[in-house]
Design a protein around this nucleic acid. Structure first.
Lengths: 226, 226
DNA sequence: CATGATATTAAGGAGTTGCTAAGAGTGATG
DNA sequence: CATCACTCTTAGCAACTCCTTAATATCATG
């Protein structure tokens, strides 16, 4: 079974996560400090690392760099809401995924599973094709009828999430949790606005939709109009 | 196991790819020319096609179009030109993914697997079929004789609940509890109304019912009329 | 045929969605 | 450091859809 190292200074969180993941069959090692965590990683060479960015003894980004210098192990970063902007930068520093505190243990486990699945599948960044819509995740480029779409980061992420699930209805709550990483608060209106912007850039609107279909009272889905 | 056709004029590359993929358990057919490749595709109807765009006898885009005219098989394009415009154009000609030469065989295999995973995921849909009635829960689409039914959220949920229990009589109280999530209060009248609406959209009524049969004093059941 | 159960239609209010616009935050630039 | 361009979030109203209630008609059963 897969092994996980969790680096988190709050003992309550660390123990909770450890217990739950261990119950799911993972082999879990905990570490309360950056140095201890680094030691654990070198020692046990885990399949995934979960890293809290708010460690007392060392800046999270710093530790991430040190981990990257040693190994290619996938790292999931956990961060408090206020550090949101920093995280997006540290993602470029080599994190594979991130979570915003507070997060549920179920969410964490889902991310761990996703990272494991990706790393075992060689993570081929696939072209997604839906009708005349093409999305290249590795270059973050989307085209419609061969014409480049000027999408903002969130718009692109949203489009990718829906395009990975063509025809499947996704609720706004789920989008808030998965695309915005805000499982709890956060009003759904933000999703509405981004959907509206996407529609405009796709050359459609709610009344006359080709790709983005709202399912009243449930959510939204991306469909192949052909 | 999955079968692959590779169309590539360079014999060295063709043989290398063939050998490696065959070693991984794929059934591989090679072709050195466009015509030969087309023949192979028609003959063996493979699961994936790997197509070199720089063939001597026919322009790659041309061949791609011909392939598309014949079949929907996923095509991965290998191209020497790395310019974005070229890539986008070939993708719009109907390719599913692309590789820029020189590529490693591991890369190719990852793409092949990704394409196969995608096309196999498409066919797996949890659909409920009752007579000429088809219900897809994930996309929340219901069709009767292939014609789309315009159902409201509650109507859809109600239909799903009954369709999951074909031939089983369900009481209104149970429906109030399970579909409406109101185990206690709430008058059963609401159910009557929704049933009536469903009947209308299914092209029937209580006096002359095909799918929705009332069992007097007990409840209602969905039956297969065939 | 009397009675309670079911069918159907109509209408109001509750809730959902669409879209515009304004404000706050960020990063780049001179 | 001021300014500019860009993005995301929030607010708010209009437009729309849906659910429930109510009223009336019809039906099944003893």
């Amino acid at each position: 079974m897969a092994s996980v190292v969790i680096i988190e200074d709050d003992q309550r969180i660390r123990q909770l996560v450890t217990r739950v993941l261990a119950g799911k069959g993972y082999e879990v090692d905990g570490a309360a400090t950056a140095l201890e965590g680094l030691h654990q990683i070198v020692q046990s060479s885990p399949d995934v690392v979960v890293l809290d960015m708010g460690l007392p003894d060392l800046d999270g980004a710093e530790l991430l760099k040190m981990i990257r210098a040693v190994t290619d192990v996938p790292v999931i970063v956990a961060t408090a809401r206020s550090e949101d902007r920093d995280v997006i930068r540290t993602l470029d520093a080599g994190a594979d995924d991130y979570l915003v505190k507070p997060f549920s243990v179920e969410q964490l486990e889902a991310r761990v599973r996703a990272v494991l699945r990706r790393s075992s599948a060689e993570s081929a960044a696939p072209q997604i094709v839906v009708g005349d819509l093409r999305i290249d995740q590795s270059s973050r480029v989307a085209t419609l009828d061969g014409v480049l779409l000027q999408l903002s980061p969130k718009e692109f992420d949203l489009l990718v999430y829906l395009a990975e699930r063509v025809d499947v209805v996704v609720s706004k709550r789920q989008l808030m949790a998965e695309v915005w990483r805000q499982p709890y608060g956060g009003s759904d209106k933000t999703v509405d606005v981004h959907i509206s912007w996407l529609r405009k850039k796709l050359g459609e609107n709610a009344a006359d939709s080709r790709y983005l279909e709202t399912v009243y009272g449930v959510g939204i889905k991306l469909v192949d109009p052909t």
